[in-house]
């Protein structure tokens, strides 16, 4: 199965006209395969919903996420305040709704940064080989040696915590795995006939890398990317939980958990809902990733 597909994909670009059609059929075949994995569809639907919530937060949220109502301090869930109030009387549901923005911005933003850096580094190392590869590979090794959270905490503390810091710090910290995957694939693609043909035709390195080779590595990158959004959301909430991410009074799920921890004895309900939402969101992204892996990455299929 896998070998047949590879044979197909290497011969297809020869027929110039067929190339475009081949791409669209491959895409729709991917979607058909993805659709077959039910949990992936559920995950996709949930993330779609979450995106809408994030965009229309001001319309959906019943109250202001930052308005303090001292008389409602730590009130448990009620008809008016469905998830209750936090330790200074803010509506927990409204804060969760606004927190969606932070989670998605960090999850998607940091992934975009990581993919860009990782793919560039990996492609460069794998394509050029030799000392370029050796140097970049040691750089990747170095990054991978740091326990991610320790590095992030240090960066956040040193640079001063803020939304931008969190996105950039996470993005520049977690790209190593993309680099490794892309490098390995590029090393093997480098020897393919169509690359030799492109080189013989006088194509520049950049064109060969981006135009001819990278499209063949996209599948695993998309899979890895969708799987890493979830872990990035966990990292962000861990940072905010430790007080080194999004700063109060701005609502973030991790920050809300931090409040929940501070008042765990008096108002234990504060810590429940944000954790459930983080878990479900991460789960949804992981399920999408599993579905994409089934659809796009024939090597990984069980």
């Amino acid at each position: 199965m896998a070998t047949r597909q590879q044979a197909l994909s290497t011969t297809a670009p020869l027929a110039l006209n067929a190339a475009g059609r081949d791409q669209t059929t491959r895409r729709s075949r991917g979607w058909r395969r993805f659709r077959r994995y039910r949990p992936g569809l559920v995950g996709l639907a949930f993330i779609g919903l979450l995106l809408l919530v994030a965009i229309f937060a001001p319309l959906i949220a019943p109250y202001s996420p930052t308005e303090v109502a001292t008389r409602l301090r730590g009130d448990p869930p009620s008809a008016a305040y469905v998830l209750g109030n936090d330790a200074v009387g803010r509506d927990i549901l409204s804060r969760l709704i606004y927190g969606t923005r932070v989670a998605l911005m960090v999850g998607l933003g940091a992934t975009a940064i990581a993919v860009t850096i990782g793919v560039t580094v990996g492609a460069t190392a794998g394509y050029f080989g030799g000392w370029v590869d050796a140097a970049l590979s040691r750089l990747v090794d170095t990054l991978m040696a740091f326990p991610t959270l320790a590095l992030l905490i240090t960066l956040a503390a040193v640079l001063g915590p803020s939304l931008i810091t969190v996105i950039v710090a996470i993005g520049t910290t977690v790209w190593a795995s993309y680099a490794r995957v892309v490098r390995a694939d590029m090393l093997s693609l480098r020897e393919r006939d169509y690359v030799l043909a492109a080189r013989a035709a006088g194509a520049r390195d950049g064109r060969i890398i981006f135009g001819h080779m990278l499209p063949n590595v996209l599948g695993p990158i998309v899979v890895l990317g969708s799987l890493s959004v979830g872990s990035i959301i966990i990292l962000e909430s861990a940072l905010s939980f430790l007080g080194l991410g999004i700063q109060p009074p701005n609502p973030s799920w991790g920050g809300m958990l931090s409040d929940g921890r501070a008042y765990i004895r008096q108002f234990p309900h504060i810590a429940v809902a944000p954790g459930v939402l983080i878990t479900v969101t991460v789960l949804a992204f992981n399920l999408i990733g599993d579905g994409l892996r089934d659809a796009l990455d024939p090597r990984q299929r069980e």
Partner: peptide, 18 residues
């Protein structure tokens, strides 16, 4: 195990403490 990967450990910790 799918759920376990998605659960943030600090939240699990808080829930177990509660």
């Amino acid at each position: 195990s799918t759920l376990g990967v998605a659960l943030p450990n600090y939240w699990v910790g808080l829930m177990l403490i509660i």
